[in-house]
Write a protein that binds this DNA or RNA. Structure first.
Lengths: 209, 209
DNA sequence: GGCTAATCTAGAACAAGTTACAGACTTGAT
DNA sequence: ATCAAGTCTGTAACTTGTTCTAGATTAGCC
């Protein structure tokens, strides 16, 4: 069997892969840091694999061993940032009365954070939606993380299927609205309205049948 | 002034550009046809510019004069297909009682059409969400077309702002759900549920304030 | 028909993602 | 300390999107 590509899967404790050594963990961090930094400068296009490699002091081949494609790298970068954001959001829970208000508040807070680094947001979101099947596990992980953030904001531990569907739809809207904003086709105000609109789904009485 | 790139804008009667000659119109059709054909075979990756050029019997440079990038080409392909689909949908209007039902029915019908050519759908949708600012006008046109289809299904001629926002959110959900299906992260059943869920927004009493 | 500007063709050249490979370095087991 | 297996490095090659160029063709106009 080829000795290759065992590291790539380790990232998000899925399978029982051998743990990374300290130096490997450090390499991985350097790479993610370089990726985020380059992305912050010029978005998706500015994250060039050769530059990431150089800037994180790693050979190109090594970079590819850790992240098997540019999209993998950027999705991993997003996971990283999302974790960070989830932590931040936890500290100051939303203050709204209803679940819908709290979710909208949380998403708008996240949105404002992204506005501070629009290029980074661009790189991550474009990678996410451009990802093909080979990145599905990683993208799915991002979805779960997003779902967790929304459920957190709702204050629910045990959602019904109808609520889960509403949460998925909110996630859809969130990503897609973000894209329209990033590509200059929607204003911040419009994104806000759309988020508030979709959040009303939460307070809806669940369907019967 | 550079004589270049006047053709590219003509596609969707926006500015008063000189009309295409017959042979040019034919070239344009050949290119779009080749693009759709290659996309049907293997999705986004299978649409290779050199192949499109060869297959439509046009020089590479000419291809780029008509469509300034691969994404432009695929978005134009989508416009083309959408027009076709809008025509088809018009012929058999949805039968549901409420606007929400009719919209859901229409979208599911469109979804079934896409399922017949999943690779083509993949190529078009990936291009659409990957498009950067330079493609905004074209992407926007696709959005308008989608909006028109949804409004048509609702049977509305003069929507309120709240309804427009609901329609936008439905469009977001539609695109994003499509992507999750195309990349194998959601089942057809799940897409159906999400569409039905978001369509409930339509029948909601409009917000005051 | 002949002129001029615009367009088209063929093909080379360039850019960035990805792969391949030979040799140096680490790691873990003995 | 030594050996084998696995990793990392540096570099070249390959692929596909995109750009460039020189020469042929076409379209509109006299």
């Amino acid at each position: 069997m080829p000795a290759d590509s065992r590291i790539a899967q380790i990232a998000h404790s899925e399978s029982p892969s051998p743990p990374l050594t300290e130096r490997q963990e450090a390499r991985r961090r350097r790479i993610l840091h370089a990726s985020a930094q380059l992305a912050s400068r010029g978005g998706f296009d500015a994250v060039q694999m050769r530059e990431v490699a150089e800037s994180s002091q790693v050979a190109l081949g090594t970079l590819y061993r850790y992240f098997p494609s540019k999209v993998h790298l950027l999705v991993a970068t997003m996971q990283d940032q999302l974790e960070h954001m989830h932590g931040t959001l936890r500290k100051k829970p939303p203050s709204g009365e209803t679940p819908a208000e709290r979710v909208a508040e949380t998403l708008m807070r996240a949105f404002r954070a992204l506005q501070r680094e629009p290029h980074l947001a661009d790189a991550m979101v474009r990678a996410l939606t451009f990802a093909d099947r080979s990145v599905s596990p990683e993208v799915d992980q991002v979805s779960r993380q997003t779902t967790a953030i929304i459920l957190d904001a709702m204050g629910l531990t045990d959602p019904t299927p109808a609520q889960l569907s509403a949460v998925r739809v909110i996630g859809h809207t969130w990503h897609s609205a973000l894209i329209t904003w990033l590509s200059g086709r929607a204003s911040i105000a419009q994104v806000k309205i759309d988020i508030e609109t979709v959040c009303r789904l939460i307070d809806l009485p669940s369907t019967s049948d």
